[in-house]
């Protein structure tokens, strides 16, 4: 007993000035780890366990179901439209905020965060109010025969709204930190705006940009609330992957529901993995 007590005392006096005692560290680590297991690892494990409960065959069948495939296809299409548009917007917004001074800059910076603070359901309702049968844009839509609600355009619009901030938020601090010296140098050497962007700005922000795109994509594919309001839940037509999971679940078709959910979970895991690789690559680069 004695030696260990002694060591403890020495350690505490040695560390007290700069860090916490051993007990505190141990307690903090335990709390963090148990939360991690309880709220993150266990649910993730459950998704795959439930999906595979009735064997691989049932899993395969659930995935190859026509409605399921349609949901996957719709989700991919919606993201494939929303993410590139947000990429363009995000780069433009980050560029203007980080490198220029203009009136309303603070307002723009604040507005970019709006989708983070608005509940996705409210977002969906806003679009229903705008494009619904009695909405603001109804006369125009009736005349031109364009269907927005309960169709792909509506789903894409809310996806864009919800995932709006991801890329811009990722780039703004990065570009602000880098300043505009390199761009000015490129311009003074005779490069035009496009050459400067392509050869100087883009290489400097590529890792942050890729990371932002990944996050944006993960959210676009996983979004439930806002899409749920505008989609109309038409099976095989306007059901995205998350909506399809819910329908299957409500029908007590647990194996299929979890099989679909496992795809979303895989997407999340792949995103995390790529992110880790990117961060490592980024670290090596410098």
């Amino acid at each position: 007993m004695r030696p260990s007590t002694q060591t403890t005392i020495i350690k505490v006096t040695g560390h007290s000035a700069i860090s916490e005692g051993k007990l505190t560290r141990w307690a903090l680590t335990t709390i963090a780890l148990s939360f991690l297991v309880l709220f993150l690892l266990l649910p993730l494990f459950t998704v795959f366990a439930e999906a595979l409960r009735n064997g691989w065959q049932t899993y395969g069948k659930a995935l190859s179901d026509a409605d399921g495939l349609a949901a996957i296809k719709l989700t991919v299409i919606a993201s494939a439209i929303a993410v590139p548009l947000n990429l363009i917007f995000g780069v433009a917004a980050a560029w203007s905020i980080a490198k220029f001074e203009f009136r309303g800059k603070v307002l723009l910076t604040t507005l970019i965060d709006l989708p983070f603070s608005v509940s996705p359901v409210v977002t969906g309702l806003i679009f229903v109010l705008m494009f619904g049968a009695s909405g603001w844009a109804a006369p125009l839509l009736d005349n031109t025969n364009i269907q927005i609600l309960f169709a792909l355009p509506g789903i894409v619009l809310v996806s864009i709204f919800v995932t709006f901030p991801f890329i811009a938020r990722e780039l703004i601090p990065l570009m602000q930190e880098q300043g505009s010296d390199e761009e000015q140098a490129a311009l003074s050497l005779g490069a035009n705006g496009w050459q400067t962007f392509w050869h100087v700005t883009l290489p400097n922000i590529r890792w942050g940009l890729l990371y932002g795109v990944l996050l944006c994509n993960a959210r676009a594919m996983g979004e439930f609330g806002a899409v749920s309001v505008v989609s109309g839940h038409i099976r095989g037509e306007t059901n995205t992957l998350p909506l399809h999971v819910e329908i299957l679940y409500n029908e007590y078709n647990f194996a299929a529901a979890f099989a679909m959910a496992s795809i979303l979970a895989c997407l999340a895991l792949v995103t995390l993995a790529i992110k880790a690789v990117l961060e490592k690559g980024h670290g090596l680069k410098h």
Binding site: S188, N192, V200
Partner: peptide, 20 residues
Amino acid sequence: TLLRERQIGFVFQHYALFKH
């Protein structure tokens, strides 16, 4: 005359070399 047309050699305090 724009900056890029002035044919000026500008050396920045912190070099502003292209890192990549």
